[in-house]
């Protein structure tokens, strides 16, 4: 039975009210981080325990924390994280797409076993491999270099899986027709399948970007010189067991959040399309 117009209106209003509540619960903590970056240090926690409008609306505004942040190692950290994240995205997308293409299109010995191995790599907790990985990086004499930050994250099992699933959905006849026309596999990969993979590339790029942007433990282990400081480490340096620079913490965390949002906003259309699309579409 369809509800009467008045009933439908009430239902609609209730649904919107519920959505507003859920959105507020999700967004208010982020809002609090953002406003804490521009309120005086002594005010940050004044209204934190008795939550009210003053918790969310600052009485005074100051750019003191932002100025201090600009004079700290945060700008250097943003630069380093950008270099690391963008290089990983550029090189990683090509490597993982090529691997995904090989798993989807070619027949070769031990293909299933190798693919199972790829799946294993992203299910393995990082802590389990960190010591051998560090030993390897040291043997290569890569500690405290960009290579230490970038290379271990280029190949990503989950991204290989994503590309493979997408390439499996492309009809084999297309490849065969291209082969008959004399195209090499490289040409097919670069000129035929990659241009079709926009949404998958967008998803893979975002996943690799965020993974590198959020990197914290590995950079500390493998490249912790001040010159190679990355964003998450610069944020964490505002806080020790006995002392916290809350203003600096919130200013740098806000910067990191806002910068990480840019690629999401640019690519969100494609991102959603890949997540909702089934591989055999």
């Amino acid at each position: 039975m369809t509800p009467a117009p008045a009933g439908r209106l009430v239902l609609g209003a209730l649904r919107y009210a519920a959505m507003v509540v859920v959105a507020a619960v999700l967004l208010l903590p982020i809002w609090w981080i953002l406003v804490s970056a521009v309120r005086p240090g002594s005010e940050i926690f004044r209204y934190a325990s008795d939550v009210g409008w003053r918790t969310l609306v600052p009485e005074q505004l100051t750019l003191e924390h932002v100025r201090t942040m600009l004079g700290s190692d945060m700008p250097r950290a943003v630069f380093n994280s950008m270099v690391v994240s963008l290089t990983t995205v550029a090189a990683g997308t090509m490597i993982n797409a090529a691997a995904g293409f090989a798993f989807a299109v070619f027949a070769f010995p031990f293909k299933r076993a190798l693919f199972a191995f790829v799946l294993l790599t992203f299910m393995m907790p990082f802590e389990a491999i960190v010591i051998p990985l560090y030993t390897l990086i040291r043997t290569l004499d890569w500690t405290n270099t960009y290579a230490a930050l970038i290379v271990p994250d280029l190949a990503n099992g989950l991204v290989v899986f994503l590309f493979r699933q997408f390439f499996l959905g492309i009809p084999r006849e297309i490849y065969e027709a291209a082969r008959v026309d004399g195209a090499s596999w490289w040409t097919i990969f670069l000129r035929l399948t990659m241009p079709l993979s926009g949404p998958t590339i967008a998803t893979a790029a975002l996943m690799q970007f965020i993974h590198q942007w959020d990197a914290f433990f590995w950079p500390l282990v493998a490249a912790s010189t001040p010159e190679l400081i990355v964003v998450q480490v610069a944020i964490a340096r505002n806080i020790t067991l006995e002392q916290a620079n809350w203003g600096g913490l919130f200013a740098s965390a806000s910067t990191a959040i806002l910068l990480a949002m840019i690629p999401f906003l640019l690519l969100q259309r494609y991102f959603i399309r890949t997540v909702t699309a089934s591989p055999d579409k």
Binding site: V130, I131, Y134, T135, R138, F216, F217, L220, V221, S224, T225, P226, V233, A236, R237, I239, T240, L241
Partner: peptide
């Protein structure tokens, strides 16, 4: 000198020493 944030200092030292 590598100044490691408190939250990860013990894990970081652990990895480096275990190598």
């Amino acid at each position: 000198v590598e100044k490691i944030p408190f939250n990860q200092i013990f894990q970081t030292i652990e990895v480096r020493l275990q190598a």
